[in-house]
Design a protein around this nucleic acid. Structure first.
Length: 326
DNA sequence: CATCAGGGCCCTG
DNA sequence: CAGGGCCCTGAT
């Protein structure tokens, strides 16, 4: 790859709301590895396309859980204007939820027999979505009916053709493409990247953005059911993808309508101690979640889920390994 | 070798 | 509203 050098740099101090757990927020061990980011304890590198400008972000932890401070370096090819930076910071604020107030969640569940200890381990963790809606949709499509390894391959192939390679701070990463960058791609070209029948969905979702049928910023202001309707109207988006979008992209902390089969197996073991091969029904789990964790079902399950995958990082969790299917 | 299902979704009957 | 088909890949 011929990487663009991002030589200009702006540095900004961010003050997330306390408590703030840097690593558990900025690294999600359950996310599949993607060439638009990388992580080391206390540092996350993340590329971003904003207003058509490829950027290299570096988040560094310079505080603690109770006195959070994040140093954000914004790397770009040319120096950025103040108004550009202001807009960018506001967008990062939205996506990363650094100002999310967790107090009510903790007040309700710190003493919960199951969730309480998990909260204690990951106090200050937030869900992470660093993508635009369009970028997230592509990820969702690439996840469908594929094993993790294959999703990684497809994403990589798309990045290499439509993304932009950048180099900054010792990292070489890809910046995602804009819908317009893919506007001229035919379904056959996309199929050439081994995305299979997903080519049609990628094509049509991209068209919807190029034609301005979807406006992410406007959607943020609409009620959840309107957001759900707009997403389901996109070709290639069904209940599983919409669930991820409503929780991750639109931050509905109580969204919990759909559990896919592979998650069902893991949840059944995790919450009911059942044999993953003889899982509970989705209805049983949904009822349990809403009875136990309303109005924070998604956030609560996120805590359990991340706890499990962090645990897996240090010591293998035998029953989980065969359910993940790398 | 062949067969099969996978971190879904669309379309059909 | 249940079920077949879909691209490709690796596991068996």
């Amino acid at each position: 790859m011929k990487a663009i050098q991002l030589a200009a740099k702006h540095v900004i101090e961010l003050s997330p709301a306390a408590p703030f757990h840097f690593d558990a927020t900025l690294h999600k061990p359950d996310h599949f590895p993607s060439s638009d980011n990388s992580w080391l304890p206390g540092i996350r590198w993340q590329t971003m396309l904003w207003q058509g400008v490829p950027l290299g972000l570096k988040f560094e932890n310079t505080g603690g859980v109770d006195a959070p401070c994040v140093c954000l370096s914004i790397h770009s090819a040319e120096a950025c204007s103040q108004s550009f930076l202001d807009g960018l910071i506001a967008e990062i604020g939205y996506r990363y939820q650094f100002s999310l107030d967790l107090a009510d969640f903790y007040a309700r569940f710190s003493a919960h027999p199951r969730l309480g200890p998990v909260i204690a381990r990951w106090c200050g963790m937030r869900p992470l979505n660093y993508s635009s809606l369009y970028e997230y949709l592509i990820i969702a499509i690439v996840l469908q009916n594929a094993t993790v390894r294959r999703s990684v391959q497809m994403m990589r192939a798309l990045d290499e053709v439509y993304g932009t390679a950048v180099a900054y701070d010792g990292q070489e990463l890809y910046v995602p493409w804009a819908p317009e960058d893919m506007a001229a791609a035919t379904e056959e070209e996309l199929r050439g990247l081994k995305v299979g029948y997903r080519a049609n969905a990628i094509r049509r979702v991209t068209d919807a953005f190029v034609n301005r049928q979807v406006d992410e910023l406007a959607l943020r202001l609409l009620p959840r059911e309107e957001q759900r309707k707009a997403m389901l109207a996109l070709y290639g988006v069904g209940p599983a993808s919409v669930e991820y979008i409503l929780s991750d992209v639109f931050h509905h902390l109580d969204e919990m309508m759909h559990i896919s089969p592979w998650e069902l197996k893991i949840y059944s073991r995790l919450f009911f101690g059942r044999d993953p091969e003889d899982p509970a029904t989705a209805a049983e789990l949904l009822a349990y979640f809403s009875e136990q964790f309303s109005p924070y079902q998604m956030l609560a399950v996120h805590y359990f889920w991340e706890d499990l995958f962090w645990q897996r990082k240090t010591e293998p969790v035998p029953w989980l390994e065969k359910l993940i299917r790398l």
